[in-house]
Design a protein around this nucleic acid. Structure first.
Length: 265
DNA sequence: ACGCGAATAT
DNA sequence: CATATTCGCG
């Protein structure tokens, strides 16, 4: 047990996004074009329950985005580009896990809690695995001597104490003020062409009490997480607040799934 | 579905 | 080279 134990919560509190920051519910990793093209209207109004994915039974919503603008229909059997886990996205992941507790923190539930469109269970599972390894490695010699900072990503987010111990409880001690979804704040990012002025799915239902509220609060304070990763200025620009696929024209067809910034953390 | 380790791909 | 994804197995 380290000294951080005493004030980890305080730190968390500090990290609480200001009301201005929380608004858009449900981040999206799917480019608007795709969402529309596929006609899949993801509605993450899950209330923490086994959400029966209303999304088509497709194994995974694959995505396409290459420069090909003519024959891009059912990209459905194609592969999804590498997901770039930005620190923000990772934080969202960590928070979700922390909130759920080690016990319930399994890929599926984590994924659901994160409410990031386009994020697959595999993505989360893979990341979770890596994260666990990181935690393990951390406990061995991370303190002060550990110079090996090869895991930038993981190091970017504070590791809740619960992860290290074994206490299977959680999510009960996190009382959050009265932060609940707020309203209509628009994204700072520009106005898209116009055809992409679609909805911003609401991930929260006020109609449900307890559990829903819990998640609502969770989500509410989660909405400020995305950042600008490593894409080159040569690629496309702002579309909307959602994630986007950026392709590096210099290297050919290198495409990377990434998120757009909402604000810095 | 989960979790791992190892291979494989970007 | 770092890291995300796929694969086989329990």
């Amino acid at each position: 047990m380290r000294e951080e134990d005493s004030n980890w919560f305080a730190k968390w509190e500090e990290e609480l996004p200001s009301p201005e920051e929380l608004i858009p519910l449900s981040q999206s990793l799917i480019t608007p074009d795709l969402a529309i093209a596929f006609d899949l209207h993801r509605d993450n109004s899950n209330s923490g329950q086994p959400l029966p994915q209303t999304t088509p039974p497709q194994p995974n919503s694959s995505t396409e985005f290459a420069g090909d603008s003519t024959g891009d229909e059912p990209a459905r059997t194609l592969k999804r580009p590498r997901l770039v886990w930005t620190p923000q996205l990772h934080k969202r992941f960590v928070d979700a896990v922390a909130h759920l507790g080690i016990k319930n923190a399994v890929p599926k539930t984590i994924m659901q809690l994160m409410s990031v469109d386009g994020l697959t269970r595999e993505n989360v599972a893979s990341h979770l695995q890596k994260y666990r390894l990181y935690l393990k490695r951390m406990q061995s010699g991370g303190g002060g001597g550990g110079g090996g900072d090869s895991d930038h990503l993981f190091a970017s987010s504070p590791v809740p104490p619960h992860f290290l111990h074994q206490t299977s409880r959680q999510s009960s001690d996190l009382f959050i003020p009265s932060l609940v979804p707020i309203s209509t704040q628009q994204q700072h990012i520009a106005a898209p062409p116009s055809q992409f002025l679609h909805r911003q799915m609401s991930a929260v239902n006020f109609t449900s009490p307890t559990k829903a509220t819990d998640q609502a609060m969770f989500l509410a304070r989660q909405q400020s997480q995305l950042q600008q990763p490593v894409f080159r200025p040569s690629s496309l620009h702002l579309h909307s607040q959602v994630a986007n696929y950026t392709q590096d024209l210099d290297s050919g067809a290198k495409t990377v799934l990434t998120l757009f910034p909402t604000r810095d953390d």
